[in-house]
């Protein structure tokens, strides 16, 4: 059965509405005000020649920039696995193809848009770029897409099947798809955090705490209901995805109420917005909070004020109050405060 190799997050990078490829948001965040905020793109020429990027939309450029940055930060050239999560995949290309199909009929469609509409485009792109023939897969399941990818990588590392893994979460949002998702009541509700985009890459490694941001102690997915009282209870804060929408927030209220012991509550979507890969940004933020051992006051959702010392964190996420995920993570042993 399960061997117990320790799993660490060696590096974690993001492109979001905050300053890209940076942790500056921990000190001076962007406070988003609109209902829909797109990511800030870095200058992609550091990673891609114009010839290489000629067919790539935002999603692919961002995925490549975050993953190559994460690999460089972890000083790993080629990961032992590439596992990707995305809720909608390359929705920009999908929409262009779909829109033309619906408006102009079935003639002469452009292959590039179709080719990049599949959800595994990103995982494949990074593999091609790093010439990585290792295990490569993609999860696409609403708001637990990244969480599913994380679980897959975690289990492989834990069981010694691989010793490093690149785990990604990527979603983009076009203006028209924002409008469509608003009609469906997923984003854009009054009082809700902005609809946003997310590109996150992290490098995980087994038995390698050197310079790690944090250790991942466990990851789980639960469908239907999450028995939070059955989870390990040694943690000193909970990170959740409140987003200002009643149904979403009520599900977190219920989970927190079921905790055997009350703990300080942290949140992140007020800074990063909502999208199907938002949990990847939440986990990224949690990893950096643990790396510095302190959650800044702006992440606190509870009554307490001021920065909060954090050594062990429970990360909770859900999709439609139906599909739940949790991650238990802690400061690595060599990073005692």
């Amino acid at each position: 059965m399960e061997q117990h190799r320790n799993v660490y997050i060696k590096s974690a990078t993001q492109i979001s509405l905050q300053e890209p490829l940076s942790e500056r948001w921990l000190e001076s965040p962007v406070w988003p005000k609109d209902r829909y905020v797109r990511s800030q793109n870095p200058d992609f020429r550091s990673w891609l020649s114009p010839l290489e990027s000629r067919r790539m939309g935002n999603l692919m450029r961002r995925a490549l920039a975050t993953s190559l940055s994460a690999l460089a930060a972890a000083t790993i050239e080629m990961p032992g696995a590439i596992v990707t999560g995305t809720g909608l995949g390359a929705i920009e290309n999908t929409e262009i193809f779909l829109d033309q199909l619906c408006r102009e009929g079935e003639e002469c469609r452009r292959p590039t848009h179709f080719m990049q509409s599949t959800h595994n485009t990103v995982g494949s792109l990074v593999a091609i770029h790093t010439k990585c023939h290792a295990y490569n897969t993609t999860y696409s399941h609403k708001s637990v897409s990244f969480d599913s990818a994380l679980l897959d990588a975690f289990l492989q590392l834990r069981r010694g099947i691989t010793s490093t893994a690149l785990v990604m979460g990527n979603d983009e949002l076009t203006p028209s798809y924002f409008n469509i998702l608003t009609k469906a009541g997923y984003v854009g509700l009054p009082g809700q955090v902005p609809a946003a985009e997310a590109s996150v890459a992290m490098v995980l490694a087994a038995e390698d705490p050197q310079e790690a941001l944090c250790r991942i102690d466990d990851v789980g997915l639960a469908y239907g209901a999450l028995r939070i009282d059955a989870l390990p209870s040694e943690f000193d804060a909970v990170m959740v995805g409140y987003n200002g929408a009643l149904a979403n927030d009520t599900a977190y209220d219920r989970l927190l109420a079921a905790l055997p012991t009350k703990r300080p509550v942290l949140h992140y979507k007020h800074l990063f917005g909502e999208c199907y890969s938002a949990s990847a940004l939440g986990l990224y933020a949690s990893a950096h909070v643990l790396a510095q051992g302190v959650a800044p006051a702006m992440l606190r959702r509870d009554d307490g004020d001021g920065a909060l010392e954090v050594r062990r964190l429970l990360f909770l996420n859900h999709s439609g109050a139906k599909n739940f995920s949790w991650v238990l993570m802690s400061r690595p042993e060599n990073k005692e405060l």
């Binding site: 010839l51 067919r55 002469c108 469609r109 452009r110 292959p111 590039t112 080719m115």
Partner: peptide, 18 residues
């Protein structure tokens, strides 16, 4: 040369038709 690939060829085929 320019470094185009098979997908570019398909795009050019679409362009010639249009």
């Amino acid at each position: 040369g320019l470094g185009l690939d098979s997908i570019d060829a398909l795009e050019l085929i679409v362009m010639l038709e249009k």
